[in-house]
Design a protein around this nucleic acid. Structure first.
Lengths: 213, 213
DNA sequence: CAAAAAGGTAAACGCTCGTTTACTACGCAT
DNA sequence: ATGCGTAGTAAACGAGCGTTTACCTTTTTG
């Protein structure tokens, strides 16, 4: 038993990410792997099954990453108090790691593009896209800033996350990927400083309030 | 002669925007219009022709809008000196108008979604996506800030444009569209203040320099 | 008013799609 | 040695694809 099933999944994902699920034929996937389409059906029940295996695998990988980074996975739900006061520096570092992941990790980058192409086809795809890349991370950031008791956490979350999201797209279409990464660093540096300023201001205000009591 | 050709184009666009070009059949387009697919071929040479007519029409509409707003169209090339010092307030207002256009205008919103789905299929689609929605507007903003002689114009452009770009996506997946528009306003308000501060700082610095000479 | 053009239908074309079937060769336990 | 699961091929299946054809109305026009 070779890792054929895995090879099929990765090849299919690469094709789905370029042309979309419907536009990729089972023959095309098999052809790319140097076998006939009949062979694919020894490993997957049907075309849909390949697609859903990709989704399942992303879910697994996401959960694992979330556990490693000690961060709530996918949709930000309730997070443990331990991370309510994540230092600003850690946040910026985490954001940069996330950017590298979604642009440079072969599986994640392809998955992101595939989801981008499927997002309007039905509710579930739209939900997944938002969860992994859109409102999901944005909501998570909002909760995080709220946890830091910052004023206008949603506004700050937009300011923090929007550059990442924009540069995902710019990265995909860029000749010089390096330059885009540099732009992200530039943006994250600015965000870090801004947040640091906000949190120290807040602390000072809190101190003043405590003096009054 | 009714506007049948137009109706075909708009219906096709709506379907392309939901499922992507390949996934939409000629029969599906015709069916949605209550006619048989044979009839479509009286108005368009083939399926591709419909698609390309959509592109051509967007190009026309974009050029027209660019002329109205007195702003270089599509890719920001050389812009007339007259707009090199566009006041900050005008820029924010223009940005809000653009956001409304790409989210609420039926044709533009569908076109944006369609292009989103087609962006990875070949170079031309990728180029168009970047031109209309990605690196294009970003580069335009960069040039604009450079024209204002701001320091780090690219960084400021990211900060300005990224929220718009993110909220396009969030808007698409949101239940409460109104709330997303409010978030955009919030972001634009912040950007306006930030820019105003930057430009007045710059002016003061320029004044100091002039004193020395 | 006749001719022609425009706009539509229904059916067929060749092709490709996803899927199933029948068959083959190999690896490996018992 | 035999029997069985595994991984593959080649061919066929019905369905649907984009496109073309033949034919019919209706509208426009000379």
């Amino acid at each position: 038993m070779g890792g054929t099933k895995e090879r099929i999944l990765l090849t299919a994902l690469r094709l789905f990410a370029a042309d979309g699920y419907e536009a990729v034929s089972v023959s095309a996937i098999a052809g790319q792997l140097g076998m006939t389409k009949g062979a694919l059906y020894k490993h997957y029940r049907n075309k849909r099954d390949i697609f859903e295996s990709i989704l399942a695998r992303m879910e697994r990988e996401d959960a694992q990453r979330a556990a490693e980074y000690g961060v709530p996975e996918g949709t930000a739900e309730q997070m443990p108090d331990a991370y309510r006061h994540t230092p600003v520096d850690d946040m910026a570092a985490f954001a940069r790691a996330q950017f590298r992941y979604w642009t440079q990790d072969e599986f994640a980058a392809s998955f992101r593009r595939m989801l981008t192409l499927e997002q309007y086809r039905n509710d579930e795809m739209g939900r997944l896209y938002q969860q992994y890349l859109g409102a999901g991370p944005l909501g998570y950031m909002t909760d995080l800033f709220e946890g830091l008791a910052l004023p206008r956490p949603r506004k700050e979350a937009v300011r923090f996350y929007a550059p990442m999201f924009l540069l995902y797209s710019v990265y995909d279409g860029a000749e010089d990927k390096e330059a885009v990464t540099a732009m992200l660093d530039e943006a994250m540096e600015a965000a870090r400083e801004h947040l640091k300023r906000l949190t120290t201001e807040k602390t000072e205000n809190d101190d003043k309030k405590e003096e009054k009591t």
